[in-house]
Design a protein around this nucleic acid. Structure first.
Lengths: 342, 342
DNA sequence: TATTAGCACTCAATTAAAACGAGTGCTAAA
DNA sequence: TTTAGCACTCGTTTTAATTGAGTGCTAATA
């Protein structure tokens, strides 16, 4: 357990390092108004803190920098600055006052606000599949051989896929089938759509229609495709302004990661409800081992339906970011509820 | 006018610089099998070529590098390597053999092929608005206050927008209006849609319906929104592997550019039919003043309907890229024609 | 016993100087 | 017209010296 004084010193060091990105020396700390000890005393404490794993020393004659454990301690003992809180909360509420009525718009806007307010990389992601329901399926013929299949969810999201109509299939019959699918599947949770289609509907259709295996296959593909949830990112280049990314090799690594949607989804998807902070290696991903990710969930009908977050160096302004994320996710929840409540 | 020998030397220098990214010295050139002159002779010619503006010297005791003018000469005098041509053409044709039947799929796939075959940044862009026609408008109610408006083009592209239904508007009337719009606007070029809606249809509707200014406004907005053509990019990080981008500041500049869709569209949109090469400052954009962009157009019904291209350092493998782009655009044209011909 | 002044020590970063060498331009000979 | 030869240039690399921020330890102090 850390003594009162050790805690003070540790927090002061992390604060300072977050601000200046330089190893912090004992004299720097002892000069602070809120610390009434000589540099020698600080040095002793620092040595202890290092031994306990909260600090690291780049080399013998340098100051200390926080370890992951140090950041973790800092984050777990953060006290929010009430003044800033009020300012930022107001600002976000104002920015969200505009009229929105689309999921995508909201996500996009939220990502923009985040990256511009924090100067880190922001992302917004909805795992809609868990709570949206099918509103309607439509088929619109393009020409003799192809048609567009459209699915609309109750949140106004539209998925479409162009299909090739198999030889010898009558277009009217196809239309009938779509109608039938509608009566059977309307209101089904998107997550259950595929299995219901496969288990119940297919069997029934085949009883009184023939040669529809192909077309059913196509429709099933359309539903399957839905898997790629979109991640809205903004300010990917913000991270390049951080001094820890002066090396192009590091930049390449991380930008590469940004290009791989699946990896992003894996990293961001499994977040617990509320605010979560993952520091450095806690993210289990080599490329961002010196980055932290802070996420917050937003809700619909009291269930978490999406994640909004920030990626920055471990040396991140945790307090500020958490405040902003907290406020933003709340606003998103409010707006969503307003728009989509029945 | 350059002498035969000057041309040989210039082309050799550009070749070498493209390959090794190092200033080329006179001895390097004189040692090549196809050049039968001493380094001293080469030096004299180099001095002349520099005076003529084809070469530059980073400093007195360094070799020469090509100027933009030098690259321009090189590109204009490229002779394609027939062997490589055959190999790459075959490879692309094979990669395009899969089944595609969607615009987006094709664009995405094309961008992937491009970036992986060239190791530069690739982009694919369709200016569909100039040649697609409206197939159908649909309105699907979500709840009492909102509905989704869907537009489908004859190329199977689906645009959608959630709208808020103004107070006091009857949903059935709304549906009637959509039906009416369909009869009037089906087959209209997307580019002309807005003006037709505004000039002809609105007037007529207002004659026998009242209080529909609001809802018409909403519909008009939906059409307007269509403007943001999507640019498919792949391999944005490839460019970071080029030695000319070892400096993070340069990287930041160019990645910033990539984030600004409008700027990209401006740069890429105004391309002439066929293959075009713009070298360095010819692109009129500070951030890519040491990059070249090579583009090719693909066609539908003999009209150019989109652009596919590569962005890389001015020190680019022009021959290879041109071959690939030529072949790829041809394949895209073929596939598009196959799918969408009536 | 806890704190601190004092001092020797460490080591990355900076600066200065020296050596290197790739490549040039020019001249004079072939 | 071509080329061998050579002095010269100038960025790069190497080496050495200097600096200074910061530490750890010890002995004195409160």
């Amino acid at each position: 357990m850390l003594t009162e004084r050790q805690q003070m010193i540790l927090l002061a060091i992390v604060d300072n390092y977050i601000q200046f990105a330089e190893p912090v020396g004992s004299r720097t700390i002892s000069k602070r108004d809120d610390i009434g000890f000589s540099s020698a005393t600080i040095r002793n404490e620092m040595a202890d803190l290092e031994e306990l794993g909260y600090l690291e020393q780049p080399h013998t004659s340098a100051g200390r920098i926080p370890s992951n454990k140090g950041y973790r301690f800092y984050v777990d003992h953060l006290v929010s600055d009430p003044l800033r809180k009020i300012q930022e909360v107001h600002r976000i509420r104002r920015l969200f006052a505009d009229q929105f009525f689309e999921f995508e718009q909201i996500m996009n806007h939220a990502a923009s606000i985040l990256s511009s307010m924090t100067n880190y990389t922001s992302f917004v992601m909805g795992h809609e599949i868990n709570h949206t329901r099918l509103k309607m399926i439509q088929m619109i013929p393009l020409n003799d051989r192809s048609a567009v299949l459209i699915m609309v969810t109750d949140k106004g999201k539209v998925e479409s896929k162009t299909i090739i109509i198999p030889e010898g299939i009558n277009k009217d019959d196809l239309q009938k089938m779509v109608n039938y699918l509608n009566t059977r599947l309307q209101g089904t949770l998107m997550a259950e759509l595929r299995s219901r289609l496969h288990n119940e509907v297919t069997v029934e259709i085949q009883r009184y229609m023939q040669d529809y295996e192909q077309i059913l296959q196509v429709i099933e593909d359309t539903f399957k495709k839905k898997k790629d949830e979109r991640v809205f990112m903004k300010g990917t280049t913000n991270i390049l302004m951080q001094p820890e990314f002066r090396d192009v090799e590091k930049v390449r690594e991380i930008l590469n990661l940004f290009e791989q949607n699946e990896v992003l989804i894996r990293i961001l998807g499994s977040r617990k409800d509320g605010i979560e902070v993952r520091i450095g290696t806690e993210n289990n991903e080599q490329a961002i081992s010196n980055c932290s990710i802070i996420t917050a969930t937003y809700h619909f009908d009291d269930k978490p339906v999406g994640t909004v977050g920030i990626l920055g160096p471990t040396r991140m302004e945790y307090g500020k970011v958490i405040t902003i994320l907290h406020s933003l996710s709340g606003n998103m929840t409010r707006v969503l509820q307003n728009i989509y409540k029945d």
